[in-house]
């Protein structure tokens, strides 16, 4: 079964979002997404400083098998990217919710509960998809 931490928010395109104390959010792809993709070998991160609208294709992760777009879960500015995953994409497979985070966003507006799925809702969504 896929790991879905309780304290995160999710999208139907399999990104996760963590609320940080400084008001930014961290974004990654879920355990389910990394499992579907298989071994990741290339990550093309967004440009720091770029402005994203919710739903934008903002970066690409590629496994041996396939390339997959990652969508901005919220609108906002990219304030930080995880260079470590560009060097070692396997971090995303090994620790999708920790070391394998992808970028941090300063959201334009921040009601995560309203715009994103909670852990239970994401779990239900996965079950409905399978």
């Amino acid at each position: 079964m896929s790991n879905i931490p309780e304290d995160l928010y999710y999208t139907k395109s399999h990104e996760w979002v963590r609320q940080n104390e400084d008001g930014t959010v961290s974004v990654g792809i879920t355990d389910h997404a990394q499992d579907l993709l298989g071994d990741l070998v290339f990550v093309e991160l967004p440009e720091p400083g770029s402005q994203l609208a919710a739903g934008d294709e903002c970066m690409v992760v590629e496994s041996v098998k396939a390339a997959s777009d990652v969508y901005a879960p919220l609108g906002g500015e990219v304030v930080d990217i995880n260079e470590a995953v560009a060097e070692g994409p396997e971090l995303v497979n090994q620790d999708p919710y920790g070391e394998g985070w992808l970028f941090r966003l300063q959201p334009l507006q921040g009601d995560l509960q309203e715009e994103l799925l909670g852990a239970d809702a994401y779990q239900e969504f996965l079950e409905s998809e399978s």
Binding site: G38, D39, V41, V64, K65, N93
Partner: peptide
Amino acid sequence: PLHYGSQI
């Protein structure tokens, strides 16, 4: 089988 854990 596509893989049994890691194809690499």
